[in-house]
Write a protein that binds this DNA or RNA. Structure first.
Lengths: 111, 111
DNA sequence: GTGATACTTAGCCTTATGGAACACTATCGA
DNA sequence: TCGATAGTGTTCCATAAGGCTAAGTATCAC
């Protein structure tokens, strides 16, 4: 439970940067190397690498080095995890809306 | 487009802290006052207030002060926005999976 | 084996974040 | 009107985030 919280921290924190979101967008079209991914960004490679590391540590991306090239691929599971948190919230919210509606339609007042 | 990016930054950044996620969870059950929301947390009020401010600025929460009590409520729209980014990514990813599958079933090889 | 390529490591800088304490203002209730 | 309640503003602190340069390590291609 403690670990789960930290995991969500990382998942969402990773999404809070435009560079990283752009990398994920690119990777959803298919795997790519670091240099390749970095190319559109006006940023030094080491800075870019930090983003990749963060994406990997947070679980959004899986990487693998072959020879001198590190290839990055998207980690499907992360979507499911982030999504499930959002859905759970929505479910809570909708449950409440339903309750409110029942109150309204049955002519009672909330609170 | 520039503004959209900054908005997403804020939306996801807000979710990257366990205190703020807990506040949203609580608020999905219904509106509440600051003190009320702060009660479960072992944190000074001014510190807690910062989280509320951040949630408000990022668009997850709407607040309104009546008398000396500030009431917080969840902002439905934020869910839709966060969700739509995730869905768009998933769509890209699935489109690619479909293409790969067509390649496979038509006996061709990718790359 | 040498030059180019593709990262990596290390260190530095600036700003943002998440927490604290303390003092303060503005209601509300008796 | 006076004490308690509910929030605010301000300042401070330690650490993390996001960027940089410079220098290092493997591979690869010849």
């Amino acid at each position: 439970m403690e670990h789960y919280r930290a995991r969500l921290d990382g998942l969402f924190q990773a999404l809070s940067d435009p560079t990283r979101r752009a990398v994920l967008r690119q990777l959803s079209k298919g795997p790519a190397s670091i240099t390749n991914l970095a190319q559109p960004f006006d940023m030094a490679l080491p800075s870019f690498l930090k983003h990749i590391r963060l994406l990997e540590e947070s679980g959004w991306v899986r990487t693998r080095k072959e020879g001198r090239v590190r290839t990055c691929a998207i980690e499907k599971k992360a979507f499911a995890e982030a999504d499930s948190w959002l859905s759970a919230q929505r479910a809570l919210w909708e449950a409440r809306t339903d309750r409110l509606e029942r109150f309204v339609t049955s002519g009672k007042k909330d609170q």
